[in-house]
Design a binder for these strands. Structure first.
Lengths: 196, 196
DNA sequence: AATAAAACATACCGACTAGTATGTTTTTAA
DNA sequence: TTAAAAACATACTAGTCGGTATGTTTTATT
């Protein structure tokens, strides 16, 4: 039962590439089958339908990736402002999972599916909530160890950072250059300094 | 030739509503015809194809709206920080053209079309560039009249504000509540204060 | 090696898509 | 009023979509 899991994973990974670069709805099953070299029989053996595969991509590819690159390094115990900035720097500048011209896959999907597909929205919301929690916890730690002012509201900081992130990913897509990321990081540093 | 222009406008407006709430690709011509009560003959008399209509929506509906709500009030001569904040407040809180649960139509379209339709991307970029220019000019005015520090880089401020805007629109979509807008505005105020 | 189940392949279907060809009605201008 | 052009209506097409029914091959177990 190793081979089967391998083909399943292949489908997920190749589909992710296509969906990430082209969008979910414009990626047809035939597109997926063509690039994987598989047939419909194989696909529908592993997935009930296209949407189930889409959810699987989020659950099995996006979530783990976000877990490691977006959240893990926030769990350190040092200066919270530095932790937050470094996290964002890593996410934007040292992440070969995402490419500037295609934005953030999670943001792309939520933008595309939000109004008409509640299941997608739900799992993407979980992802977003997990990131928020990690940021909130980091700010709370910062307040405890004195690296962040006592009157700072963690949820507000999280929301502000996350909205900046979604936004700058979109700007990068339009500008097709990661130079906008650097500019954003500069301003973010100024903002984070106001929390100290 | 008045009637014809009226039906053309009807098509544009109703199509905009559908595309704004459902997305461009998931809005079929039949959808549009059903809600407008028109037929294909009428549609294809006024537009060469679906894409041409999509571009027309941006040019003839989005651009004028953005012109008035996003840019005009930045042209005042007072405190630049206040002008910038008030603009964003108006855009997010006093705009019946957009609804929280559907985000920003321009952002939606650019997100959906960016990777695979250059014409859409081009006109949406024009829109985005016009907003950027207005913000940059406002900051420059602020530097002249002393309401903003001399070492502040206008382009960087513009980029930071715009990315925050795209982002918070997306967050609002996920949260389905304009309360996130208020939180964002609060943090934006803090950030803008660092420019003084 | 035999057998059953797992894994995959092929052919097909109905629904839907944007777009067209060809009509009919309405409006405009003389 | 009438002819011509503008504005709209209807019927149809070729292609694509996700999904299914039914087949064949491969793998694991005995």
């Amino acid at each position: 039962m190793k081979k089967a899991e391998a083909t399943r994973l292949t489908i997920l990974q190749k589909s992710f590439e296509l969906i990430y670069t082209k969008g979910y709805q414009t990626t047809s099953l035939d597109d997926i089958l063509a690039t994987t070299g598989m047939t419909k029989g194989a696909f529908y053996y592993h997935f009930k339908n296209k949407d189930e595969m889409g959810i699987a991509i989020i659950e099995e590819l996006l979530k783990p990736t976000f877990e490691t690159t977006f959240m893990r390094q926030l769990q350190g115990e040092g200066d919270a402002v530095k932790l937050l900035y470094d996290m964002m720097y890593t996410v934007l500048m040292k992440n070969d999972f995402m490419r500037v011209e295609y934005g953030c896959p999670a943001a792309n999907l939520s933008q595309e599916m939000a109004p008409w597909h509640s299941e997608f929205t739900r799992v993407l919301n979980e992802l977003s909530e997990a990131w928020k929690k990690a940021i909130v916890q980091c700010v709370k730690n910062g307040k405890k160890n004195g690296s962040i002012r006592a009157d700072v509201k963690p949820e507000q900081v999280a929301l502000f950072m996350m909205s900046g992130y979604w936004g700058i990913r979109n700007m990068g897509k339009l500008a097709n250059s990661s130079s906008v990321y650097l500019v954003y990081l500069k301003q973010l540093k100024d903002y984070l300094a106001t929390l100290q």
